[in-house]
């Protein structure tokens, strides 16, 4: 008898928990999972005319995607750009997170707030200000010309993949600083002292102890930068030019002017699938390399 009630009670813990989780899970299912599923199904349809869609299932849109070089080029470029954004962001923010975690003694919180504050201010405006900085008549060019250092504006600054990478690395910095800082700050300082004590130099200690222990932060940063940036639309539009256009701009066109939902859906599916795959590979390789080093 008592065992029976215990079981009911143990189960009721789960029931209570899921009652609380219900709204959140319902939202994810209704507003994310089912639309995505529907998009997946749509990717097997065919756009016949402006208003008409043939719902016979076909792999035609995937064939379309892979037979036209423009799509595969854009996909490859999107992933390449995201990869470099992730890499640049990690490399530039790691020393900073390291500095805050190990060297800042007072007001650590203030440092973190200041380093993440720009992230909260309008994304659009931040991207736009890079357009202004890098533009033909932009801040950099006008300043350099005013100083007499150059005669003509430097044209390579804007409308390039480099401009996109730079802008995105700036925009996503907070997403790298936070997980890196959290994982570095957790490291027990006596582990590092033990490493010195056992004869490792500072440099060896970093690669053999600090970096491997900060890996959760590195991987977290990879996942939350790599995947979302591939779908960025604003940055390529504003600073990318034709050379910096990404797959997301194409998807936007397919759902907008071109009005080809099935092909747009197929592109979205391919984008999500390939970027997830690459992110997993990058994570895996990072983990392996780090293990090899320590």
């Amino acid at each position: 008898m008592i065992r029976y009630w215990e079981k009911i009670y143990a189960k009721s813990e789960n029931i209570k928990a899921y009652a609380l989780l219900f709204p959140a899970l319902l939202m994810v299912i209704l507003a994310m999972a089912s639309p995505m599923l529907l998009t997946f199904v749509t990717s097997f349809h065919t756009q016949v005319s402006m208003m008409e869609i043939d719902t016979t299932l076909t792999l035609g849109r995937y064939k379309d995607f892979f037979s036209k070089p423009v799509y595969t080029t854009l996909l490859g470029r999107s992933i390449k750009i995201s990869f470099f954004v992730t890499l640049v962001t990690l490399i530039t923010t790691y020393p900073l997170a390291y500095y805050i975690a190990f060297y800042v003694k007072k007001n650590k919180m203030l440092w973190i707030v200041l380093m993440t504050l720009p992230f909260w201010t309008s994304y659009l405006l931040r991207v736009f200000s890079w357009k202004v900085i890098l533009g033909h008549k932009g801040v950099v060019n006008s300043a350099l010309m005013a100083l007499g250092m150059i005669e003509e504006p430097l044209g390579f600054l804007i409308y390039s993949q480099t401009a996109v990478v730079l802008t995105l690395a700036h925009a996503w910095a907070a997403f790298a600083i936070l997980p890196l800082y959290v994982s570095l700050d957790k490291i027990d300082k006596s582990l590092l002292e033990a490493s010195y004590d056992l004869g490792n130099s500072k440099f060896q200690t970093f690669w053999r102890v600090t970096f491997p222990l900060s890996l959760p932060g590195v991987i977290g940063a990879i996942l939350i930068i790599f995947i979302p940036t591939v779908g960025d639309y604003v940055t390529p539009q504003l600073v990318g030019g034709t050379d910096g256009r990404m797959l997301s701009n194409m998807i936007q066109a397919l759902f907008g002017r071109a009005n080809n939902f099935p092909l747009g859906a197929a592109s979205a599916v391919i984008m999500l699938f390939s970027v997830s795959l690459v992110a997993l590979i990058v994570t895996y390789v990072t983990r392996k390399v780090s293990m090899r080093m320590s």
């Binding site: 995505m36 529907l38 939350i224 779908g231 639309y233 747009g264 979205a268 999500l272």
Partner: peptide, 11 residues
């Protein structure tokens, strides 16, 4: 984590 554009077009 999912790119916003994916959520947007799905909706």
């Amino acid at each position: 984590v999912i790119p916003e554009i994916i959520i947007a077009v799905s909706l």
